[in-house]
Write a protein that binds this DNA or RNA. Structure first.
Length: 850
RNA sequence: GGGCGGUUGGCUCAGCGGUAGAGCGCUGCCUUCACACGGCAGAGGUCACUGGUUCGAUCCCAGUACCGCCCACCA
């Protein structure tokens, strides 16, 4: 009887319990590095629901792991949870409708409901972190359920979370080592800043989005000229931050102006007009403002000029006050500048932009054509990938990990890794080559690993950021906002002569980049570490090559020059049936539970197994169905074969020998595919042998002999089934386990069985008899099909002519053909030629159907 | 704008220097002896386009056109 869906669930549950009870997937710490296969499992971000893409890519990893396990490797397959960072904070804010206000005291009695609605409640940092823990614990439970359901053969006794004590310890210690080496440095510099999240963001977290802007044409006066110069800008609100004007040195329109001084309208600031290769004569008016700071080019130019910055945009995205007429706020008309600046102070960027344009118009400094609307332009604008408003450059103090001076070495490290597919190495290299700033590793967030640094406070009460107070290794992990540095008392916090804790946390990647060592006992347990590092396999998605892969390779290199893993297997991400990217907002995201309920885990894994590494697979219900059919077929074939009982022995019949020979070839091919990281080809090869050779042809031909109790046939059927189960085990862990135990109820798990070897089937011989038998059978079937009669209708006369070799082969398997196709008379005629077989079929009288 | 992939039957995808393959879908046929979640037979492709290399190209090279992904200093 075909199994119903409920039965499938029952079966899955039963075998999960079996694996758990048997410890099937346990790592054995007593075996050495060379017989161990170590996976650097991606710790999924605990940010709500898993989607079907997770199932696909995690299954890819599990396929390899199961193959390696059957090859006899001791598997180290841990699971981590990436719970620190913004996604968790966001989720907490949404789930509990709260926001973190670090100035508030901890409220030990605070109790909030999951899914609380209503006004946003400000809560203390400690309360906030407690809620993060609640959310994370809940998510991890769901993730684990899902991963177990799809039968990831993870050793669940080895788990970690990127926020747990051990990860904080590793993360902080590794970072302190970088400080000591001078590879992690504190810098006050313009940094890309998200004004909503109010945190610095790294280059890797930035994305361009096309946004429409408006060119405003602003007239600057220039010494010794009547008309001045017209400068086009999409960001007029940065006018007070203008420190220079640049044009291309070859631009004849402006050549005469180079070296002169321009005066900004509204603020009367004298600024130099300079030549710069980066100015594009085609854009705008071809001459542009340099402001502190509109973009990275501004930052560069500002550094070159070596002048103080005029900061106008604050960390909250609003315009800062300015001291026009003093210090570096030079102006020819302080009163005017202050009056204008007062009007925009405190406004948002957008409000200020609008107002400045109005003020410019009033002052007659706008050169826009009054009869037509200003020119629009669509240009790329930088956003934090999780943010909604454009990034601004803000001067702040951040920790950086130095990578710019190591591009070549990091590319070299990438070449020591085998990438699957190979082309993704190129993507890694392109990213490294394109780096334009060091890795900004500090974040102004709350739920993360604290930066383990304090700063001394001098006698005047000023924080001295050059005097770092660092913890001892034994004290790690620390939280500088709650603990004093060594040699200080908590009472000295914030006092003259005391200390200040670094308020920031690490960028998520600063910790995630250590996943290859977090589960290895580094740096204290040398023996375990040596058994597990470098890892063998890093599976990951291609869109985070620039983040996770890059930062991990970087950290390993900085630590000891090592490469973190030998292989990187890159999965694509799953597209919806229309090949569109899935997203929750579009409502086309497919929930794994729905698919698993409908088709079962093995069928979903079959689908994942059909998707090649690195390509983006689409949801395809046909493939799920295909998987389901395969599962049913395996079950039915097993039932048939098991019906004959168990018989040992080498094949004595030529057809049996040929089948074993073909099985040997198949095992060989499948193994080769696995070794070249091509699970798709492995699956296809195994499937095609099973379906075509074993079921459609061999089973039919050998059936009669098996019913007659012939040992050779029964033994061959058994060996075929045994090999099939093992070859499919990595893909279909449940049904293969079930069938494995239907052969031998006392057996241990199929997932610990040895991978089939060509050696096992060396008593086979694919001499061509199988092909000949199939060829003749095809002719007979075709004749019957064309005559539209049942396959049981007898063949009155079968005539075959051809070369002697083939006829001899045919003769050796003729008995099976005769019984299978119901052949009454036959005539084999040797022709001497080698043109293949000529087959004639004369059908007998169809026995009348009743 | 740069880089990397892709373009093969209605759909999803293999293949790869020598007369085009699979699964699904489609057409016809075959049922109780493993399986109708099955079997058999069949229809269906100028392998995106243009040049080149070659005895011969879907496969190699160059270019073009679309599609996708990644990246790129926002005037």
């Amino acid at each position: 009887m075909p199994k119903q869906a409920d039965d499938v669930k029952e079966i899955e549950k039963r075998w999960r319990a079996f694996w758990e009870e048997q410890g099937t997937y346990r790592y054995d710490p007593n075996r050495g590095r060379d017989e161990t296969f170590v996976v650097d499992t991606p710790p999924p971000t605990a940010s709500g629901a898993l989607h079907i893409g997770h199932v696909c890519s995690y299954t890819h990893t599990d396929l390899v792991v199961r193959y390696k396990r059957m090859r006899g490797f001791n598997i180290f397959y841990p699971m981590g949870w990436d719970d620190n960072g913004l996604p968790t904070e966001r989720r907490v804010q949404n789930v509990f409708s709260v926001r973190c206000d670090p100035s508030l005291p901890y409220d030990p009695d605070l109790k909030l409901e999951f899914g609380r609605e209503g006004d946003v409640l400000p809560i203390s940092r400690s309360n906030f972190i407690e809620l993060c823990d609640v959310v994370v614990t809940e998510d991890e439970k769901q993730f684990k359920d899902m991963f177990q359901r799809v039968a990831l053969s993870v050793d669940w006794t080895h788990t970690y979370a990127t926020i747990d004590r051990r990860s904080r310890y590793v993360s902080q210690w590794s970072f302190l080592k970088l400080i000591h080496k001078g590879e992690a440095v504190l810098r006050e510099a313009p940094t890309m800043w998200d004004v909503d999240f109010q945190t610095a963001v790294a280059q890797a977290e930035v994305e361009d989005r096309d946004r429409e802007g408006t060119y405003h044409r602003i007239r600057f006066s220039v010494e010794d000229t009547d008309d001045g110069v017209v400068i086009a800008t999409t960001r007029p609100e940065l006018l007070p931050a203008c420190i220079a004007v640049v044009a291309h040195p070859d631009d004849s329109r402006y050549r005469e102006l180079i070296g002169k001084t321009a005066i900004t309208p509204l603020f009367g600031a004298p600024v130099p007009i300079m030549a710069d290769e980066s100015a594009d004569p085609e854009k705008g008016t071809g001459i542009l403002m340099v402001c502190t700071f509109g973009d990275a080019a501004d930052v560069e130019k500002w550094r070159e000029m070596g002048v103080p910055a005029r900061e106008v945009i604050g960390r909250n995205g609003r315009i800062l006050p300015a001291a026009w007429g003093s210090d570096h706020w030079e102006t020819i008309d302080g009163e005017m500048a202050r009056r204008h600046h007062d009007k925009i102070t405190g406004l948002s960027v957008n409000q200020a932009r609008k107002l400045i344009v109005e003020l410019l118009a009033e002052a007659g400094a706008l050169a826009d054509d009054p009869d037509s609307s200003p020119e629009k332009v669509v240009r790329p604008v930088k956003f934090f990938e999780k943010g909604d408003r454009p990034l601004e450059f803000v001067v702040s103090r951040q920790w950086f990990i130095k990578v710019m001076d190591k591009k070549r070495e990091l590319i070299e490290q990438g070449r020591k890794i085998q990438w699957h597919p190979e082309m993704f190495r190129k993507r890694y290299e392109d990213w490294v080559e394109g780096l334009n700033q060091d890795w900004g590793a500090s974040r102004q967030r709350y739920f993360g690993v604290p930066i383990p640094v304090w700063y001394a406070i001098d006698g005047d009460g000023n924080v001295d950021h050059d005097t770092l107070l660092l913890p001892q290794k034994d004290d790690l992990p620390v939280d500088p906002s709650e603990q004093p540095p060594p040699g200080y008392e908590e009472s000295q916090r914030g006092q003259p002569g005391g200390f200040a804790g670094d308020p920031d946390v690490f960028d998520t990647w600063a910790t995630s980049s250590l996943t290859p060592v977090i589960p290895t006992g580094w740096p204290d347990d040398e023996k375990t570490f040596r058994n597990l590092y470098p890892n063998d396999l890093r599976p990951q998605a291609h869109e985070i090559i620039r983040t996770w892969a890059f930062t991990t390779i970087t950290r390993s290199y900085l630590e000891d020059g090592s490469v973190p893993w030998h292989h990187a297997a890159i999965s694509g991400f799953v597209l919806d049936p229309d090949r569109k990217k899935m997203s929750k907002s579009k409502g086309n995201a497919v929930l794994p539970t729905d698919v698993l309920d409908e088709y079962g885990s093995d069928a979903v894994r079959y689908w994942a197994g059909s998707a090649r590494l690195g390509v983006d697979p689409a949801i395809d219900h046909n493939v799920y169905r295909e998987g389901k059919r395969l599962i049913t077929k395996i079950r039915n074939a097993a039932r048939f074969v098991n019906g004959f009982g168990s018989v040992e022995g080498a094949p004595t019949n030529p057809l049996d020998r040929a089948l074993i020979g073909r099985l040997q070839q198949t095992v060989d091919k499948v193994t080769t595919h696995w070794e070249s990281w091509d699970h798709t080809a492995a699956l296809e090869t195994a499937e095609s042998w099973f379906w075509s050779d074993f079921c459609d042809n061999y089973l039919e031909l050998a059936k009669t002999r098996a019913y007659a109790g012939e040992a050779s046939a029964i033994s061959t059927l058994g060996r075929g089934l045994d090999a099939i189960v093992r070859m499919f085990a990595p893909f279909l862990p449940y049904v293969t386990e079930e069938v494995w135990h239907s052969i031998d109820p006392e057996a241990s798990s199929v997932h610990l069985a040895p991978w089939p070897s060509a050696q096992e089937f060396s008593d086979g011989l694919d001499d061509g008899s199988f092909d000949v038998a199939v060829e003749v059978m095809t002719h007979i079937r075709k004749a019957k099909s064309e005559a539209k009669v049942s396959l049981k209708v007898p063949v009155e006369q079968l005539t075959v002519s051809g070369d002697k070799r083939r006829l001899d082969l045919l003769e050796s398997v003729m008995d099976d053909i005769v019984t299978t196709a119901n052949v009454r008379n036959r005539e084999l005629t040797p022709t001497g030629s080698d043109d293949g077989l000529v087959v004639g079929v004369v059908l007998g009288e169809a026995e009348k159907k009743q």
